[in-house]
Design a protein around this nucleic acid. Structure first.
Lengths: 143, 143
DNA sequence: GTTCCTGCAAAAGCTTTGCAGAAGA
DNA sequence: TCTTCTGCAAAGCTTTTGCAGGAAC
């Protein structure tokens, strides 16, 4: 995974996206904190460094990155759009207690079934919900 | 699948949900048109029969049904919450051309992996997107 | 000088909340 | 009568749009 600003710049140039400080920082935020942030989380994180930043710019930048295929949208929960820079197929687990999103690997080929043989499948998402190990042990401790 | 109003009434009573005409009709709408409707689609469909119906009631009813475990929420697309009365595990395919949602069966056990062995999984969703056969043939015809 | 980007403000859209009246037991 | 349900109106949130100023080339 690319992480330095120079490498991110290269990635943007490859996809014909003009460079700007804001765009680089949004991209860096997604790369460094691999936490599937919401728009608000990205905005809050970057606002410290860029006090003039507006949410509009975050929205604009994310749309550009999604359209360019560099970032994918995760809609695991209604009214909570999240963004993920890892385009490899993997599942997402959301802990209903702490809200954390965990990645897990899946063999997506196992899901392909005869029913969809005449469908053109462009995007595959697997979303699980439940309680993560950390929260489970907390619950058990408090019993 | 239950479909008559009497059977739906029984289902509600089992779950200790009080009966009302609006609630029965929302439930009937979900049962008859197995099309994973949005709130707006349910409202529009029922408004013909119940001119006084308000969206608030549709929202209230759906929350009650979801909380009772009779209906599940589908968030296959951001800003488009859909509702499904079929609680059996199955995948959803959304056609990006016509917007239709198709069900397909999946063997959910195949997805269970070692990484999640310490997680308590309560909900599993599989969302695919692409083009459905009907739209594919339309596209080919217009070539 | 031209083009594109940023960010404020306003608008739009969906969902929730407050509350008064109505319906039902 | 008492409880619950309905539905209008308003509020709350997230996201989008319009537009003027500014930066970059």
């Amino acid at each position: 995974m690319k992480s330095s600003l120079e490498e991110l710049e290269k990635e943007l140039k490859i996809r014909n996206i003009n460079i700007s400080y804001q765009r680089l920082k949004v991209l860096e935020c997604l790369t460094l904190n691999h936490c599937h942030p919401t728009v608000d989380q990205i905005f809050t994180a970057l606002h410290k460094d860029i006090p003039t930043l507006s949410k509009t710019t975050v929205y604009n930048t994310l749309r550009i990155l999604v359209d360019a295929g560099m970032v994918r949208v995760i809609t695991i929960e209604e009214h909570e759009t999240r963004y993920d820079i890892d385009m490899e197929n993997h599942g997402h687990f959301k802990c209903e207690s702490c809200g954390m999103i965990y990645d897990f690997s899946i063999d997506i080929d196992l899901l392909t079934c005869d029913e969809l043989s005449n469908f053109e499948v462009n995007d595959q998402n697997v979303y699980f919900k439940g309680i993560c190990p950390g929260c489970l042990s907390n619950i058990n401790q408090n019993k």
